[in-house]
Design a protein around this nucleic acid. Sequence first.
DNA 1: ACGATCACGTA
DNA 2: GACGTACGTGATCGCG
Length: 513
Amino acid sequence: HLYAKILKPYLEDDRIPIVTYDAKLLYVFLGREKVNIKGMKWDVMLGCYLLNPSRNDLSLKSLIYDYLHEVVPEEEEKQAFSLVQGLYLLAQEMIKLLEKDELMPLYLNIEISVAKVLAAMELQGVRLDKAQLKAMGKELEARIEVLTDKIYILAEEEFNINSPKQLGVILFEKLGLPPVKKTKTGYSTNAEVLEFLADKHEIVQEILNYRQLVKLKSTYVDGLMNLINPKTKKVHTSFNQTITATGRLSSTEPNLQNIPIRLEEGRKIRKAFIPSKEGYILLTADYSQIELRVLAHMAEDQVLINAFKEGQDIHVRTAAEVFKVPMEEVTKEMRYHAKAINFGIVYGISDFGLAKDLGISRKEAKEHIENYFTRYAGVKNWIDNTIQEARNKGYVTTLLGRRRYINDILSKNYNLRSFAERTAINTPIQGSAADIIKIAMLRVYNKLVENKYKTRMILQVHDELVFEAPPNECSKIISMVKETMESAYPLDVPLKVDMQVGFNWYDLESIKG
DNA sequence: ACGATCACGTA
DNA sequence: GACGTACGTGATCGCG
């Protein structure tokens, strides 16, 4: 495009600061035109996101209304001028507010630079093996067909198995199964309910199997295939930098941050994710227990800090503390329970939630939590302080000063208040982990560019980065990525990164080191 | 056509 | 007296 060509010398002059709305979009557009824009500095969407990451409408019109108290006219002729003028004035207002809230370092050092990295990742894309997906689709189709017939026979009629409403009628009215749980609109038929009913009628397990396969085929096999760009033979996700309230990224069209891994059936989808060039390999690098390490650091909990410093299995250690036994005597069962407790802490635990998760009584769950807080007294203290801080200031912050307002923290409604308290606990933990991986992404990206490596960063999945690399760069990249990620933001505990390598995202081999 | 709801995939 | 956090997508269904 002509505009890109004409503007190229100005855009590539870094002495000219540029005000934008959605810098990443512009990076992607200009990247396609081979323009390496330099002066991108004030992005109103990104800045206003930092001012209030819970805000759901970040449209320019809405920002102009809220920050400048101006109404953008409806008429198209007047609108363009109003929006551009608004953008310029908004940038000045935003700068003032970022300064006031001490968000400028986060904005300048991290977020505005991350936008460029994300654009590069989106442009790079991820290669998918279409034949692999087609084969999986065929197989799933056949198995779904068999299950469908079996379900119709067991139900003694044909119905739409995909409709929770129709399924509810079959299960709870025709077959007389006990309705365990209700939704707003009728019977609940979710996996938890069906698992409870599984031994009461043969049809139930088949429904569960059916659901699993249909999910894989529709969302992953067909869904991914439809989004392959025929020109590049790749999928080019959008990484959204201004969606989550905690500072994490999100991914859409396709969402590449929820590709199955837990169940073997689903995990096979990952076989289709391959490097974009012959002979290249995939490299994954994931932070081990980053959220619990962040918690240990922020809470300054000496027990938790020592556990990580000594490289202990953190779930075994928590089991030892909660069940009051030596680490050598921790059973699998105890470790499993401790793992749920560790997860629960990060989410702002409740005895009810833990009891449900572990299938134990609420009383037992309560005792576990009390034991946890007795042994990890620093964590207990941090939680109390953080909730108090939320009450006093109205917001909580991450390690890098990212801010989230906690509106209902003083609510008289128990449910709203409890939810707010859990949010106040989870946000600094999840958000600080997000801060850290963003720093790591920037540094890794810069090193790839500086050293003119052919290796490319292609995905971020919250605590994991995925790269594709030519074989001759492999060993250098492995040590560079690991080192860079582990030193991205020094804490009172070590950050540990596990690395894997393989020819696709399924068959990965751990790298020792 | 679109939004709400349910269900379910990830960290 | 109901409940652990953060997301995105697909199918259905009822609305317009």
